[in-house]
Write a protein that binds this DNA or RNA. Structure first.
Length: 548
RNA sequence: GCGCCUGUAGCUCAGUUGGAUAGAGCAACGGCCUUCUAAGCCGUGUGUCGGGAGUUCGAAUCUCUCCAGGCGCACCA
């Protein structure tokens, strides 16, 4: 409508504009500034060589809001055009929420595009730590948001079951196994010193006894690795399931070696002339793609590096499996790996913009006021399982998704335990439970909504009611922004706002015990609030309890 | 040294591709339950948006610079 008004103004010679800017609609912070506002007049001021206020006046004079939800239009401040919506808009919002139910909030900016979200991908050499907990909460919520935004989402866990750290894992297990058999052995430098390694070795001993005592080290390690990986993966799957995460695909790095894809992609890069040999190793000319320096693809001992297998992995994602868009959730300590991967995609003829990496800042663990260095190698850590057991899945997921990925987190587990009932997640869940309680009582009294068109929603005139409905109307927009900016924490903030507005409403107005028509209208309102809270919590995989 | 991220109220953090008087939770104080769950609501206030400069109608947001913190810069992943 605005665009048309501008076009007409230009046609009539009232303005001189070459390019009509994109109309950005925003929600003003102050209610006196209307329900929606645009800054188009100010954006165009320079181009039109006219004061923004004048432009705004021309635009407004050319708009006809008679067949819309717009009640009136005002020009304010330096040239904002503010729109005030009719109450009819609020009624339509409630009907829409009522009709769409669990699908309310779904938008289609994704158009069914195939997107893969890879997250956590914890090393299967030990239990998952707090960083994995954060990555899990973030990645899973991001995947849900994209699903709500109309993408065809695949959740994937990449199993690093090949390479150097697996070797170290093998040596570490071997040392513990031999120790248990009374044979002197040491966990090697840079090996894994955690308790879990001893547990695995002991379990192995219980199953196989001293069968692997006198066999060659290589055979012994192979058996230990096979057992250890299998067992660790089982535990990882179990813990993630408790955390509410179900993957579509568990992808093995080793499978890329077994299928020959790693060697094929190295060969491809060689053919394209993007490699050279130096010091007995094969190097990738990353500097051609904007990197600071080149990196090694194949070590002088003949083994490919993780870079090589990762390139093969991403080629598999894009080419073999045909994902349109790939999103990796990585810890900030891997940020140096982003540019090489994008460069490699370019080298393979894949548009690097189809690869996004969400870098999340690290979780620093605090204990007794001191920073605890988390490391699988030193074995000193707090696991995801500890977090779930002591703080709870819902509180943990809400906590992590309250912050943007860019925000570093200091996590004090003792404090988290103490404060877990102050976690805002309960504030939201409480709102949901309160609504469910009212609904139960209304249903017991035989009140029900047969046909929403027979409910007079225009009776919802109180400020608290209008504010609440406007917030509900904003949900699809919130999903859109969260998807576009890859920022699922927006949903957490949003549902907190909804809960807050509901609690305000609850304390100033009653549903039960008012005149019947109004009661029914408010019944529809709280049903809508319940739907939105539930849908939002569902995105975060947080339970929406009916009683608390 | 180079690169990425961060610096916003006493504390923990939001701030939607530059927008109107910078917001919430926690903590502090005062008030609200004979009626739908007080895990709630209402009220009271504090900011050199790390410092400085620039870009423009307009900057917490963009650019430059300096300061502080985190992370990375392997033939580990």
């Amino acid at each position: 409508m605005v665009t048309t008004a501008i076009e007409n103004s230009v046609k009539e010679g009232l303005m001189n504009i070459e390019v009509i800017p994109e109309i950005e609609i925003e929600e003003p912070k102050e209610r006196q500034h209307g329900d929606l506002a645009i800054n188009t007049a100010m954006v165009m001021a320079k181009q039109a060589k006219m004061p923004p206020k004048k432009i705004a006046e021309i635009i407004v004079s050319k708009m006809d809001p008679s067949n819309t939800f717009i009640e009136r239009i005002e020009i304010a401040g330096p040239g904002f055009i503010n729109f005030f919506l009719k109450d009819k808009f609020l009624e339509e919002t409630l009907k829409l929420v009522y009709e769409r139910g669990k699908d309310y909030g779904r938008v289609n900016i994704g158009n069914g595009k195939k997107v893969q979200v890879e997250f956590v991908s914890a090393n299967p050499t030990g239990p998952m730590h707090m960083g994995n907990a954060r990555g899990g909460a973030l990645g899973d919520a991001l995947a849900s948001v994209l699903d709500y935004a109309g993408y065809d989402v695949t959740r994937e866990f990449y199993i690093n079951d090949a390479g150097n750290q697996i070797e170290k894992f093998g040596y570490s297990l071997e040392a513990r196994y031999l120790q248990l058999l009374g044979i002197p052995a040491e966990v090697p430098e840079g090996g894994y010193h955690g308790e879990d390694i001893i547990d695995r070795a002991r379990e192995f001993l219980e199953i196989y006894g001293d069968k692997y005592k006198d066999v060659p080290s290589e055979e012994r390690r192979k058996a230990l690795i096979e057992y250890g990986l299998k067992k660790n993966l089982e535990k990882i799957k179990e813990d993630l399931a408790l955390y509410g995460i179900e993957y579509d695909v568990w992808f093995s790095e080793q499978s890329l070696y077994d299928s020959g894809e790693v060697y094929k992609v190295i060969e491809e890069l060689k053919q394209k002339g993007y490699t050279y040999e130096k010091d007995g190793a094969l190097w990738f000319k990353m500097t051609l793609f904007g990197a600071e320096k080149d990196d090694v693809l194949v070590r002088s001992n003949g083994f490919p590096t993780y870079l090589a297998s990762d390139i093969a992995y991403h080629k598999n994602k894009f080419i073999t499996r045909g994902f349109d868009w790939v999103i990796n959730v990585w810890g900030a300590d891997h940020h140096g790996h982003v540019a090489p991967m994008k460069g490699a995609m370019q080298a393979l003829g894949i548009d690097p913009d189809r690869l996004d990496v969400v870098l999340m800042q690290l979780v620093k663990l605090i204990e007794g006021g001191q920073v605890v260095k988390m490391s699988k190698r030193t074995g000193r850590m707090v696991t995801l399982r500890d977090l779930i057991d002591e703080v709870g899945k819902d509180a943990a997921r809400f906590f992590f998704n309250l912050r943007s990925a860019d925000s570093p987190i200091d996590f004090d587990l003792d404090l988290a335990k103490e404060q877990s009932n102050e976690n805002p997640v309960f504030y939201v869940q409480y709102a949901h439970a309160r609504i469910c309680s009212i609904i139960r009582q209304l249903e017991e009294e035989g009140v029900k909504i047969d046909n929403i068109d027979e409910v007079d929603l225009s009776l919802l005139k109180e400020e608290e009611e209008k504010e609440l409905i406007k917030k509900l109307a904003y949900f699809p927009e919130e999903i859109t922004i969260a998807a576009k900016t890859l920022a699922p924490h927006r949903i957490t903030r949003y549902v907190l706002d909804v809960a807050s507005l509901f609690h305000s409403f609850y304390n100033s107005h009653r549903v039960k015990g008012v005149e019947e028509d109004l009661m029914k209208a408010r019944f529809v309102l709280i049903l809508a609030v319940k739907t939105v809270i539930k849908n939002a919590l569902n995105i975060l995989k947080i339970t929406a309890p009916e009683r608390m």
